[in-house]
């Protein structure tokens, strides 16, 4: 009943950030089509260990598409060919027997390769630290229903907040732009009434940090949206542009 396939994997191997990497080809037999993509890599790794070779290092954790840890470009597309699907939720039935699969790490200057398919995504954390929060201390919050929030606003904020911070947007962007990630966070918090007091500061600080980390600019081509496992929309980027411009205009004319 279980269908299996034989594959050729072309995997990026790189010892660490300081050394150059290269592709290595591995044949892999009897992969169940019910396996997930990462389970397929598990099989490869078990075989490598058996041969006394170092297994392919890749980031992964929850394997249910929500933690955002897994990060690999499969046949040129971040997270592989299935729309709105992380690599861990991608299943082998979307590939066919005899296929060659090219697996590469995210490629972006701000995300240096640490080993094989693992990249360093801490720039995302630093963008968050610059302004991705609503200031307030535990214990001083007012009654939750004291401030009604229209359903539409809450839904929009949720659409933005669904971002899992995987970095596929950066990986897919030919400019390695982090606009979709930054915009999702800004759109989430700037659209909620709680986030309004810090709206301008947030947009300015997060964009400044984003640029400072060495991400490229947005050319509005939409590759980020196409690979985003949570289907974050380019609308969020429009909002970031708008909020950023408004914040800048205000800062031109602010009283000194």
């Amino acid at each position: 009943m279980e269908k299996t396939m034989n594959l050729t994997l072309k995997v990026w191997r790189q010892k660490n950030a300081a050394t150059d990497g290269q592709f290595v080809e591995y044949p892999l037999k009897d992969v169940s089509e019910d396996s997930s993509f990462l389970e397929m890599l598990d099989i490869l790794n078990e075989e490598l260990v058996e041969q006394g070779k170092e297994p392919v290092a890749f980031d992964h954790d929850c394997r249910e598409g929500i933690c955002g840890t897994c990060s690999m470009t499969i046949n040129g597309t971040a997270h592989g060919p299935q729309r709105a699907t992380t690599a861990c939720q991608l299943h082998m039935r979307h590939f066919h027997d005899g296929q060659t699969i090219t697996i590469e790490p995210w490629r972006a200057k701000p995300f240096p390769v640490m080993k094989d398919l693992i990249v360093d995504r801490t720039p995302f954390d630093r963008i968050m630290q610059a302004g991705g929060f609503i200031t307030g201390r535990a214990g001083s919050a007012v009654e939750a229903n004291a401030m009604p929030i229209p359903k539409g606003t809450a839904d929009y904020a949720m659409d933005a907040a669904a971002c899992i911070g995987c970095g596929a947007c950066v990986a897919a962007c030919p400019n390695a732009s982090a606009m979709l990630f930054t915009a999702a966070k800004v759109a989430h918090m700037n659209s909620l009434p709680q986030g309004k007091p810090e709206k301008d500061r947030r947009a300015l600080a997060m964009v400044t940090t984003m640029d400072g980390e060495g991400f490229g600019g947005c050319t509005n081509i939409g590759e980020c949206e196409a690979v985003c496992p949570k289907e974050i929309s380019l609308d969020m980027i429009a909002q970031l542009n708008r909020d950023y411009a408004a914040a800048q205009v205000k800062s031109f004319f602010k009283a000194v």
């Binding site: 609503i134 214990g139 939750a144 904020a157 949720m158 989430h188 918090m189």
Partner: peptide
């Protein structure tokens, strides 16, 4: 606390 910190609960 969660609402104050921007958690977009269903409404």
């Amino acid at each position: 606390q969660c609402v104050a910190s921007g958690v977009p609960f269903a409404r």
